[in-house]
Computed example of a mutant assay.
Amino acid sequence: MKRLKSSALWFFASLLTLLAGPLLLAASGALHGAESWQSARRDSANIAPTPEQAPEAIVQVYGARAWSWRGYFAVHTWIATKEAGASHYLVHEVTGWRRAVVRSRIAAPDTYWFGAEPTLYADLRGDQAARLIPHIYDAIAAYPYPDEYRAWPGPNSNTFTAWVIREVPGLDVALPNHAIGKDYLGDRIAAPVPGGLGYQLSLGGYLGVLAGVREGIELNVLGLSLGINPRALGIKLPGIGELALLNPNPMPEGGSP
């Protein structure tokens, strides 16, 4: 009986630890936005340079809090590309309300995600970006779940972003721990981390562990991840994300996350 009580206490303590971040966000009301998705902001946050300001090739990775209550747990991520001399950006992402979930469209790269302000995770420019863009297009075309979407544990928008990053050599970008779905590997159990140097193990996105130079160390339980990132001098908390002093991802000279 004592062992049973001890096991029950351990289980509920672990569950409370995982849910503490999302519950705190929900209680604070910090993520409350528009009452409906129709009226939520979708304009540019003016983070990215315009094509006129930066004629060079650009590859950027963004994320923003998911819509409604999902934002207490996770972010939605996407990739933006602009070829050298192009007059527009292309935004590449997965959404769950279309039969063909993958879409690449002409759009501002840094729009609010239904009221949630975007965060720039990585920014590559010039010759490096120009070399990566054709491979990004190839990876998007080869995405293995073009007609499949599950918000949890995946495949979802973050699965897509992580897939493209893994498939493109040189596009080494660590996604935040609260990008739920990034650890969904399908039928695979092991894969390289998106950040480049490192590896991860995952059982269907429900349980896993990750270790990488850019990502640090993460433990994934039921899609919620926690860990530490020595390179960024940060800690990773479920729902809240990474609280770090540095950005481990590539940014332009003088840029900031």
Rank of each mutant, 00 (worst) to 15 (best):
Arg65Asn: 15
Pro109Arg: 11
Ala74Phe: 04
Trp69Val: 13
Leu16Ala: 15
Pro176Cys: 08
Glu215Gln: 05
Val168Asp: 04
Glu52Asp: 11
Arg41His: 13
Leu25Asn: 14
Ala108Val: 04
Glu242Gln: 05
Ile189Lys: 14
Ala66Lys: 12
Ile106Cys: 07
Gly196Ala: 01
Lys236Val: 00
Ala40Ile: 08
Tyr199Thr: 09
Gly255Phe: 00
Glu93Trp: 01
Val75Gly: 14
Ile106Asn: 12
Arg103Asp: 06
Phe11Arg: 07
Ala151Lys: 08
Asp123His: 15
Trp113Ala: 14
Gly223His: 03
Gly85Trp: 07
Val193Asp: 01
Leu175Arg: 11
Ala190Ser: 09
Gly198Leu: 08
Glu167Cys: 06
Pro134Cys: 11
Ser202Asp: 04
Arg65Gly: 15
Thr81Gly: 03
Pro144Asp: 07
Ser68Pro: 03
His32Val: 14
Val193Met: 07
Leu246His: 07
Ile58Asn: 04
Asn156Leu: 02
Ala48Val: 01
Ala190Trp: 15
Arg3Asp: 06
Trp97Asp: 15
Ala139Asp: 07
Trp37Pro: 09
Leu233Pro: 00
Ile240Met: 00
Trp10Met: 14
Leu171Val: 04
Leu19Gly: 10
Pro49Asn: 03
Val173Pro: 09
Ala162Tyr: 03
Gly223Thr: 02
Leu246Val: 01
Leu175Ile: 09
Ala64Gln: 13
Met251Val: 01
Gln38Val: 13
Tyr145Val: 03
Ile133Glu: 05
Asp183Leu: 08
Pro49Cys: 02
Leu207Arg: 05
Glu117Leu: 12
Gly239Cys: 01
Pro55Ile: 00
Ser225Arg: 14
Ser14His: 05
Gly216Met: 01
Thr81Lys: 06
Ser68Ile: 05
Arg166Gln: 09
Gly21Lys: 10
Ala27Phe: 04
Ser28Tyr: 10
Ala80Asn: 06
Ile47Arg: 13
Gly21Cys: 10
Glu148Phe: 07
Ala108Ser: 14
Trp67Asn: 06
Ser44Gln: 08
Asp110Cys: 07
Ile47Cys: 10
Pro176Trp: 07
Gly223Tyr: 00
Val59Pro: 05
Asn156Ala: 07
Leu24Gly: 15
Asp110Gly: 10
Gly21Phe: 09
Asn229Val: 00
Val101Lys: 10
His32Arg: 15
Gly254Tyr: 02
Ala151Ile: 14
Ala244Lys: 06
Gly255Gln: 06
Tyr199Asp: 03
Glu253Ala: 11
Arg125Tyr: 02
Pro153Gly: 11
Ala86Tyr: 04
Tyr145Glu: 09
Glu93His: 13
Pro238Asn: 01
Ile47Val: 14
Val61Glu: 02
Glu35Val: 06
Ala64Phe: 07
Ser225Val: 00
Arg166Ser: 06
Gly234Gln: 00
Ile189Met: 13
Ala48Trp: 01
His76Gln: 13
Phe114Trp: 15
Ile189Ala: 15
Thr81Glu: 05
